[in-house]
Each structure stands twice: as C-alpha cells, then as structure tokens.
Design a protein around this nucleic acid. Sequence first.
DNA 1: GTAATTAATTGATCTATATCATGGATAGGA
DNA 2: TCCTATCCATGATATAGATCAATTAATTAC
Lengths: 249, 249
Amino acid sequence: MSRFTPLDQNHIEPHMCSLDLRLYILGQLPFFKNLSKDQILEINKKFVDRGYLSGDMIYAEGSAAERLYVMADGSVKLIQTSPQGKEVLLDVLTTGDFFGGLFPTSNDIYRESAYAQTPVCVISIENSEFRKILQNYPQVALSVMDIISERLRDSQSFIRLISTATAEQRVAYTLVKLSEKLGEKSDVGLLIQLPLSREDIANMSALTTETVSRIISKFQKQTLIKTGRKWVAIRNVEGLKNILSQFMP
Amino acid sequence: MSRFTPLDQNHIEPHMCSLDLRLYILGQLPFFKNLSKDQILEINKKFVDRGYLSGDMIYAEGSAAERLYVMADGSVKLIQTSPQGKEVLLDVLTTGDFFGGLFPTSNDIYRESAYAQTPVCVISIENSEFRKILQNYPQVALSVMDIISERLRDSQSFIRLISTATAEQRVAYTLVKLSEKLGEKSDVGLLIQLPLSREDIANMSALTTETVSRIISKFQKQTLIKTGRKWVAIRNVEGLKNILSQFMP
DNA sequence: GTAATTAATTGATCTATATCATGGATAGGA
DNA sequence: TCCTATCCATGATATAGATCAATTAATTAC
C-alpha cells in the first residue's frame, strides 16, 4: 500500500473521454474560446479521442507528424533523446495544452517523443483538418500564433537560463515554473500535481540526477520545499524566486 | 587600410531604403509571397523604413514592444543580457527576416535587444497594423504561424544542444548553422557573410571567448575552417557535421 | 509479509570548461 | 607610418558539476 503521497491519484480512465468532456475541453481551448457552440460541435467531429496508460508512448521522435493533440486529462511529457541516450525534457503538458504536429506539410516529422506520465486522455485531429479549421476561422489562427510565439519566448528565456545560470538557479527556475503551472495548495505547501522524479527535474534543468538530488536536499534543509518520492511541494515561493532574482529581471 | 577581410564591405547606406527595395523585400517575404502586387502596395503604406549604423541599437530589451521589423539589408543581432552582464546571442538576422514585436497586446515588452551588426536598413510596422493585416489575410497568418513554429523547433533543438553537447560540438553547430544561412562561396571556402567575432560565436554557443578561441584554433589546424579577425570560412562542412553527428540525427 | 525493483541520498573523485593573466596581431585613425 | 583600440591566442589555475560507487529508503510484485 502507498505509505504516503500527497498527489491526487484518482486519474481519469481511458474510457472517460466522453463527448461532454471533449466538448468542454475544446470549448475551453484559448483558441476556440470565441467560437459558437455550433462551431465547436462541428470542429469536434474532426477530433478523435484516445486514452493512454502511464508510461505509454503517444508518438515517437522521428515518425511522421500527422496529428495535433490536445490534452483532455492527465499529464504528458515531451522528450528529446540524444543518440547517446541523454534525455531532455522539453515540456510537461496538462489539461488544455496542445502538442504534436502543427506543420505546413504532411511529410514533416515529430521532433520529440510524447509519453503519458499519468493515465491520460487526449483528443487529436489530423494535421490537414486542423489547417482547414485555421483557414476557416482566422481568429483561431491568430490565437494559435500567439500561443506559439509565447512558447518561443519561454524557450528563449530558458536558453538564457541554461547558458548563464548555476545549477541551483536552474532547479529553482524549474520548480517555480512547474508550480505556476501545476501548483495546488495542500497541507504540505504548494504541491506540484505531477509524479515528478529527481530525474525528471534533472532532464528539465539540464543537470544530472545526483546534482538535482543534492540541491533538492539543500532546499529542503532551508525549508524552501518539502519533497518525497516523486513529488515536490513549495513551501516558500519567494525564497526560490530570490535565488533566481540575479538573472531574472 | 584594410589589410585583409574577405567579407563584402559595400553595405547599403541608410537612405537607400528606396520604395523599390521596400516593395521587393515585402514581396519576397514568405508570408506575403502569394499576395497580389496591389495588396503589397497597400500593405507597404503601413510600413516605414529606417537606416541604422553599425552598432546602433534598434530597440532595447524591456521597452514597449510596439513594432514589427523586417530586414531589408545588412545584419542585426538579437541579444539577451543578464543582470550580471552576460550576453546571449539569440539570433542573427539578414535580408527578409522579421523580428521584434508580434504580440497580442500592445502593452507587451521586447524580450531581447536588437543591434545593427552592419549598416542596415529595416522596415517596420506598428504592431496593431500588422495584426489587422493578419486578420484580413488569413493565409498570411498561417505562414507567420509556420515560421514561428519552425523557430520554436530550432530553439528546442538548441536547448538539446547546450544541454548535452561538448564545447566543440556547440561551436561546430553554430558554424554549420551560420554557414547554411549566410554562407557564400569564396576563394577561402564557404564564407560566413557577417562580421563575426570570437565573442559572438561564444555568445551563440553558451561558451566563453577563450574556449571558442581554442576550439577555432584547433579547427583551423584540422583545416576544417579558415578564419581571421571577425570572419570565418568553412573549408570542410562534412568534417564539421561529423563532429555533430553523435547527437544530431 | 517478504523479496525484488526502483528511486533517492550521499561521498569521493575526476574533468571540461571557466577564470585569470599576458603577449601578440590586426585595424583604423591621426 | 606610427599609435591606440580591439581582437585574438594561449598558458596556468580553479571549480562547478559530472561521473563513479555504495547505501538507504520507498514501492511493487509475489
């Protein structure tokens, strides 16, 4: 029996990708938000849903990028692997995020692999169908553009981070970002709602697990965080941000 | 007198941002390519042009992001600076590239500074005007989206690079990328048409100038490149790519 | 409930690259 | 053609974080 984890465990079952959930998710997407109920219903027809179990691969780096995915429930990791086997965790996605192919030509390939990190339900649409939607609803294309350009800027901030920051700053940054995205108040602090190992943090921060472990231990001693096996909660966000302040304006 | 530089020196004068050049540049832009002559003329009215001298700042990180810029001639560096003064060279832009604000709200800020690296001519448009164009011409929005998503993927590849690659691999990558974008055949090899110091390469590769200098010397001894003050030419692209092959699929 | 597996900690050592320091080379102005 | 800025090369040293290695703790399997 689980001795202790503060994480929510009641994740959705694959079959729970109900029509209602699908419509709800689609309607909540920032780029579909301004569409009418009927338009959403129409768009929904082009989507298919599917559940995955924890650890399942949703698509593989290098394979043909044919579909765009939208998270309905659970969490998904986007990972690039180098030939020597080193992994870079590009992003963690949760409800409402989209990922996968967004490409002009159908003969493009995925640049990363996507793995279910918990049981997940995703809905997906064929690339060409999604482009039709973008053409038919110009404001949708604009919203998608905005989201991608925001991601580009995040990505560039991250480049600055790993170009100039110390290991401690990188871990602090990773934890602050994750808590902003996935943090939920709990009795152990601002809990990052995600099974998150030291290795995951290492792959997100461009460090080794050992280094992350040492830093996490230190942060815990400083009562900045509280942590256990595969979970982290933030006790003192300001303290972590303080570590970052030297290079984040 | 210049003793030796293989770089083209006859750069455009600021006043040479003629109407003809402007129309030509606008017409060549990948996202305006499919528009009619009349449409281009109409769009052109919203653009203003301006010349800058080498070293001039075009906009500053942190200031209000009000304009979108398009390169007409010359080259521009996009730089992020950390509070400690460390610089990260995000990109080098040349004719036809766009940069600056592409943002949904007018109260957003630039995330990087833009400097003229040579004498340049840029044309620019107010953010809100550009968004009107995107709304009026849906296929333009789609093209812009594609370009940004390509940049995002490049940026993610780069994150993998600096997360996992050695200093030598980073420099090789930087040189290969630059030569693909700016390389011109010359009698010293595939010359990168850009005044490119060791420091620039260092800031693009997340390394120090000293480390870059050592690696550049080594590459030169291996006759992979030929280099001088502020210029680099590639003699053996395959050799450089070979250095990369261990982590670039 | 016990064994087997996986995750995390912690210590000892190593190494790639940064940092510090100096001299030489090149460019461009007077 | 000299003078002075930069730019570049290279040696010596320091160090952050990786790597190697061993131990402990938490989970899952039986």
